[in-house]
Design a protein around this nucleic acid. Structure first.
Lengths: 151, 151
DNA sequence: AAAAGTTGTTTGCTCATACAAATATAAAGG
DNA sequence: CCTTTATATTTGTATGAGCAAACAACTTTT
């Protein structure tokens, strides 16, 4: 097999995993009527209603423009609305949005159940591990020094 | 921090990792003039010139239509050409395509160097591990039984 | 050897995400 | 106060990948 060759490439494996798990997540959230990422955005609102768009971006690790577009869609579905406060755009869940909370948590649990059932031990802490890896990779200095740059 | 909440979600972490590593890979391959995925396609050709599109899809874990589009672009750049053989479309690297081999391997090595330098031990076998995880997740029966379906 | 089925590829469309530039508001300095 | 600079959001545009349906070519059946 030639693909042996690519197995060791993180770009390759990470993206492949992303595609697979995205499809699983889309299935899991299909009944809720919102995409997985949109679901996470709403779940963030349940924790912090009135959060700013910028913070949403930080929590979801998405670019501001991506958040804008997500919010547009969810606002069109009347699941949330925004109130402009100075240069901030504060986001609130509507009642309709709030009413999804239970469903979304169910979908989320179902998703996790599903991949845990398949992966067994393999899953153990995998998400957390990947999260750590992301954080390391995102450090601007690439982790090459242990200390922040001098002022 | 609210994002504690999402760390345990594989959908979340895997896609975040995908975005980060994709950007790193794009940087690494920028000098070669082709995207990372296109680079892998070409590297597959170096190993098996005249491979069919279907096989390319299997090796790269991409859908047939995605492979078609990739090949269109690379053909436009004169890096490969295809010869139709029955219903197969066999793909060959052009001389120009072949001349990229050394550069692409350098880019690939540079990419790996870079994330290995950042991740250290954390990287150890990560790609391979993810590859395994992908394979398990992709089994149609979701891994719920140990045996193939009866005939 | 024609009909029906199978397999490989292509086409049209959609989606999620992002970048870069534009815009809007606020904060700081003279 | 007015100008400059910083910050938050939006807009226009692009890219990578996918699905579903169409198409094309081979295979099986009869």
């Amino acid at each position: 097999m030639l693909d042996i060759y690519f197995k060791e490439c993180l770009y390759f494996s990470a993206n492949r995993l992303g595609r697979i798990i995205t499809k699983m997540a889309e299935d899991a959230f299909a009944s809720s009527g919102v995409s997985p990422t949109a679901a996470f955005l709403l779940m963030a609102l349940y924790e912090r209603d009135g959060i700013s768009q910028k913070e949403l971006g930080q929590i979801l690790h998405l670019q501001p423009s991506t958040v804008t577009r997500l919010i547009e869609k969810l606002a069109a579905k009347q699941l949330l609305y925004n109130r402009v406060d100075g240069r901030l755009s504060l986001i609130y869940a509507t009642d309709k949005g709030k009413s999804l909370e239970a469903v979304l948590h169910q979908c989320w649990d179902a998703l996790r159940e599903r991949y845990r059932a398949i992966l067994g031990d393999e899953e153990d802490g995998l998400s957390l591990h990947l999260y750590e890896v992301c954080n390391q990779l995102e450090q601007p200095n690439g982790g090459s020094t242990r200390f922040p740059a001098a002022p």
